[in-house]
Design a protein around this nucleic acid. Structure first.
Lengths: 189, 189
DNA sequence: TACAGTAGAGAACGATCGTTCTCCGCGCAA
DNA sequence: TTGCGCGGAGAACGATCGTTCTCTACTGTA
């Protein structure tokens, strides 16, 4: 038998992909079992309920998002560039063929009203992102009020790209972010 | 018996409220029946399936949204003011006690992957909003590229307010919109 | 070989949901 | 008054889903 850690990862990864492409409620635990190659009994020994699995999947998504963002800002040499790198990161993501919007927003729309655990996990991810942006804004020497504005642009780009199906939303948001950054830091335009 | 039009409205209104507060999939047709006071048989003579009812509810929401937006921009005397009125409209909405995010975004997250009819209805609403913004931007004499930026701000404000639970998102988005408008129209700052 | 313990496959269970059907009561024409 | 058609209430049906249970096969040990 495979060890617990490997089994957990297999279940989370399989569930993540299924939930993201089909929606959480549309995926039964049987489908997770088949995709992960882990028996139902084992799954329920690793996660006490589907709700707990969903939360684990969201935490996994948070980690993936964080590391993706970190590696996207790798080449940036200034806070300003790191901020704009967020939108380049979104741009690349939106163009992936299986892009289906932000999993956190989708899951919140699906279960935010009925599961507080899910709502909390989603809220925590968004809070952490806002904090990340706030740090970059401070590093760039811009007023703190700029941070929520940039975060709103990033959120709006994600929903727009998901619903309208236009990856251009990332470029539009990036252009707006640049303007806001320039004005906030007194850069000549 | 009440006439068809009244029955339709009663069902749509009841379903709208239930779907919005609890999520679409969490609400059974029985709950709609009870809330609307219309028998199941009647409901299924008015709508051939739950999916069709969902689409009807979305269309109803679109009409409510459009008229709300129109009345919010009533007092505005310029295109610039009409643009900013969008964010004041959002602000008032976010502060309503039963605000639970944008129903279109939520429903898309819930059913966009499984029902193309739902996805289409949501996409159409967003497209219509973008068109509305584009007209205002043209009237304001700003470059067309500003329109998607403002639309993204409005979308981002909605998801941010819904998930973080902070109505301030409308004010943040409004401030960003003002900056973008000023820059785009060459207004002194 | 005999046996104990464990894990997997999938049947089973109970609940729920979308949809349809049955039965009953009411209004109306002759 | 009698028969008839129609609509409402909700029971019934079939499917699905989350969760648990049963049975079987396999491993390691003496």
């Amino acid at each position: 038998m495979i060890d617990e850690k490997t089994a957990r990862q297999a279940v989370i990864r399989a569930a993540d992909e299924l939930f993201y492409t089909r929606g959480v409620q549309a995926v039964g635990m049987d489908a997770v079992r088949t995709a992960a190659g882990v028996s139902l009994k084992r799954i329920y020994s690793l996660f006490s309920s589907k709700d707990e699995l969903i939360v684990a999947v969201l935490h996994h998504r948070t980690a993936v998002w964080d590391s993706g963002l970190a590696s996207a800002s790798q080449r940036a040499t200034s806070a300003r560039e790191r901020i704009l790198a967020i939108f380049d990161f979104l741009d690349a993501w939106f163009r992936e063929p299986d892009f289906r919007g932000c999993a956190f927003i989708n899951t919140h729309g699906e279960l935010g009203a009925s599961s507080t655990a899910v709502a909390d996990a989603v809220r925590e991810q968004k809070r952490s992102f806002q904090e990340y942006v706030a740090h970059l804004v401070a590093d760039a020497g811009a007023p703190a009020a700029l941070a929520p504005q940039l975060a709103i642009l990033a959120e709006g780009a994600q929903t727009t790209a998901a619903i309208a199906g236009t990856p251009d939303a990332a470029r539009d948001a990036r252009a707006a972010a640049e303007t806001l950054l320039d004005v906030a830091t007194g850069r000549p335009r």
